[in-house]
Design a protein around this nucleic acid. Sequence first.
DNA 1: CGTCCAGGTCTAC
DNA 2: GGTAGACCTGGACGC
Length: 283
Amino acid sequence: MPLRGAGGEPVSFSFTINSHGLAALPPGHVDEETPGYDIAVALDGKITTLRFTERDGMLIIAGDRRFTATAEREIRSIATRMFRLEDNLAPFYAMIDGDPDLDWARSGAGRMLASPAVFDDVIRTICTTNCAWSATTRMITALVELGGGAFPDPSLLARTPDEWFADVARMGYRGPYVRKIATDVVEQGLNLETFLPQHGLGEDEVEKRLLALPGVGPYAAAHMMQLLGYHHRLILDSWTRPTYLKLANKKRASDTTIRRRFARYGKFAGLAFWLYLTRRWHE
DNA sequence: CGTCCAGGTCTAC
DNA sequence: GGTAGACCTGGACGC
């Protein structure tokens, strides 16, 4: 399928795909040798590995078997979600034309790699809070192992006992939060997929609902908003703050000051901030 | 060994 | 609305 954004703009994952994206899979799932990206998902009730590669502006998707028409539609949907092809960055690229800090990004940068499902990203994001990155990968590796190679769906997490979260995944206080969200999806009709812009809830309402989830505060909500395609909020955490100071050659800057610095990018302020911080990832 | 803190959040004032 | 303290875990660090 064509690798273009919703506005026909270029899409590039030069570095993010193979490395640091939040949705990056546990070690072993990412092939560092070839410019491709593997992910295991459940299709037709079976765990299937999909390999994404890019050639001449086309996204090539290879599977390990033949697929039904239903599965093919699902694959297309997964790819569109993961690579954020529903997101229109053309207005942003027009905005940064000639911008000394961000003009480079017009070649197609700015799409934080997403998981096949919004649910996955919410849980993954909670696993990034208040811990070292090594703990994040440990927790997510355990989750994917529980899922048999793919990220576990809500019903599997809902029926997995508390002891597993505490003793196997070692998620500490996050375990009950994750189980609560999974249980609400299964039993209370909570549908995180409706947070996607196409469902029309509206930016403010989506943010409100994210913040209402246990374990999701300002940082996690900002990260999810970015993944969902709402680019206004700045992701402010213990990595982005010092990274900004270093790149901007400043001694200190309050969150308010940082926000003011990026306010010129309007509804794309958060994306501008993220690209400012991750520029070297794309070189 | 104890303390601090890492890509924060929640509760109680 | 703003702020202190607690919170699982485990690696880094000082003593």
